Amino acid sequence: WVPDSEAPNCMNCQVKFTFTKRRHHCRACGKVFCGVCCNRKCKLQYLEKEARVCVVCYETIS
């Protein structure tokens, strides 16, 4: 899990986070992404309901 303080930009597209461009943690890899790069949901083994995942993890999992 990457702390918010260590991620000033999206770890995929590099967009800078602001008050309106929020950070989202991928529940699969723990990296920090913008809403566009972390907009998929899928079922993870260790969680009961679907969770937010990044586009890279989504392609790997599904």
Rank of each mutant, 00 (worst) to 15 (best):
F17I: 03
Q14Y: 04
T18S: 13
C13K: 00
T18M: 05
C38G: 12
S62F: 08
G35C: 11
I61P: 15
A28T: 03
I61F: 10
E48R: 10
E6L: 05
R27F: 01
L44I: 08
S62N: 14
Q14P: 09
F17P: 02
P8M: 14
R22P: 08
C13H: 03
T20D: 02
C37R: 01
A51W: 02
K49D: 13
C57A: 00
Q14F: 06
Q45E: 13
N39Y: 12
G35L: 11
E59N: 10
V2H: 04
V15P: 00
V36W: 07
R22K: 05
V55S: 11
K41T: 12
R27D: 03
C54P: 02
C57F: 00
E59K: 08
V55N: 14
E6T: 06
A28S: 11
C37G: 02
R52E: 05
N12A: 14
K41N: 15
W1S: 15
R40A: 13
C10V: 00
Q45T: 07
Q45Y: 06
V53G: 05
K43L: 12
Y46F: 07
T60F: 10
E50G: 09
F17D: 02
P3W: 06
V2A: 02
C26T: 00
V2S: 03
T60K: 04
N39H: 07
N39I: 10
S62Q: 04
T20K: 11
H25D: 02
K16L: 10
T20V: 08
I61W: 06
Y46L: 14
C54M: 00
E59W: 06
N39F: 06
K43P: 14
V56Q: 14
F33A: 08
N9L: 13
C54S: 01
V55M: 10
F33W: 00
I61C: 15
F33T: 05
I61S: 14
N9K: 09
H24I: 02
V53H: 07
M11Y: 09
V2E: 02
Y46M: 14
G30N: 13
F33I: 06
V15Q: 11
T20L: 11
N39C: 09
M11P: 04
A7E: 07
V32D: 04
Y46E: 15
C10I: 00
K49Q: 12
E59P: 10
T18F: 06
F19N: 14
V32H: 04
W1M: 15
V55G: 10
Y58G: 15
G30H: 03
K49A: 09
Q14W: 08
V55L: 13
M11I: 07
E50Y: 04
C37Y: 01
C34T: 01
T20Y: 07
C29D: 00
N9F: 08
A28M: 12
A7H: 05
F19T: 15
C34R: 01
C13Y: 01
A28V: 05
I61R: 13
A51Q: 13
C10W: 00
N9I: 08
K49T: 10
A28D: 15
Y58R: 10
Y46T: 15
I61Q: 10
C37K: 02
C10S: 00
H24D: 01
R22S: 05
V53N: 05
S62R: 05
V53Y: 05
W1F: 12
K43H: 13
D4T: 11
C26F: 00
N12D: 15
G35K: 13
V32S: 05
G35E: 14
K43W: 11
A51L: 04
C38S: 09
C26R: 00
E6H: 07
D4C: 04
V36I: 10
E59Q: 08
F17R: 00
V32N: 05
C42V: 12
N12P: 00
V55E: 13
C26H: 00
V56N: 02
K49N: 08
V56L: 13
C37Q: 02
C29F: 00
R22Y: 07
Q14A: 12
V55P: 09
D4Q: 03
H24Q: 03
C34V: 01
L47N: 14
R40P: 06
V36K: 09
L44W: 07
C54H: 01
E50A: 06
V36E: 07
D4V: 04
T60C: 14
T18G: 08
W1T: 08
T60R: 08
Q45S: 09
C42R: 11
C42S: 13
R27G: 03
F33C: 09
H25I: 04
A51H: 07
N39E: 05
N12F: 05
F19P: 14
C54W: 00
D4N: 09
L47H: 12
R27P: 05
I61V: 15
V15G: 12
V36L: 09
R27H: 04
R40L: 08
R22G: 05
F33H: 05
K31V: 02
R22A: 08
T60V: 06
P8W: 06
M11R: 10
C34N: 02
A28E: 10
F33R: 01
I61N: 13
K21C: 08
R52G: 04
R52V: 06
F33K: 02
K41E: 15
K21H: 14
E6M: 07
A51V: 08
T20E: 09
C29V: 01
Y46D: 15
C29T: 01
E50F: 05
K49E: 07
F17T: 03
C38E: 02
V53E: 06
N9M: 09
F17N: 01
P8T: 12
K41R: 13
K16F: 10
T60D: 13
S62A: 08
N39G: 11
K41Y: 13
C29W: 00
Q45L: 07
F17K: 02
N9R: 08
V53W: 04
H25P: 03
C37P: 01
P3R: 10
R52S: 08
G30Q: 05
Q45I: 11
G35N: 09
R22V: 06
D4S: 04
H24S: 05
C34K: 01
Q14E: 15
V15L: 11
C26L: 00
S62I: 06
H25L: 04
T60P: 14
C54Y: 00
F19A: 15
D4G: 03
T18V: 06
K41C: 09
H25F: 04
N9Y: 10
F17Y: 05
H24F: 02
T18R: 07
Y58W: 05
S62L: 11
M11E: 09
V55W: 07
N9G: 13
I61Y: 13
V56P: 08
G30S: 06
V32F: 04
H25K: 03
K16T: 14
K41I: 13
R27Q: 03
P3Y: 15
C37M: 01
Y46C: 14
S62G: 12
T60H: 07
L44V: 13
K21Q: 15
K49Y: 07
K16G: 12
G30D: 05
F33S: 03
K41D: 15
E59S: 09
N12W: 08
D4A: 02
C54L: 00
R22F: 04
Y46Q: 15
G30M: 05
K43C: 14
V15S: 10
V36F: 14
R22L: 11
Q45P: 08
C54A: 01
R27N: 12
C26P: 01
K31S: 13
H24R: 05
V2K: 01
C42P: 08
C37S: 02
G30F: 04
F33D: 03
Q45M: 08
L44F: 07
K41H: 12
A51M: 07
A51F: 01
S62H: 05
F19G: 09
K43R: 12
A28N: 12
R40F: 12
L44N: 03
K21T: 11
R22W: 06
V36T: 07
V56G: 14
C26I: 00
H24L: 04
V56T: 13
V32G: 05
R40Q: 14
P3A: 07
K41S: 12
C13V: 00
C57R: 01
K31E: 13
T18K: 11
H25A: 02
S62V: 15
H25T: 01
C26Q: 01
C10Q: 02
R52Y: 04
R27A: 05
A51E: 11
N12M: 14
G30T: 06
C38I: 03
C29R: 00
T18H: 06
Y58Q: 04
S5C: 10
K31I: 04
A51S: 09
V53S: 11
N12Q: 10
K21L: 04
T60M: 07
V15W: 05
T60W: 15
V15T: 10
A28H: 08
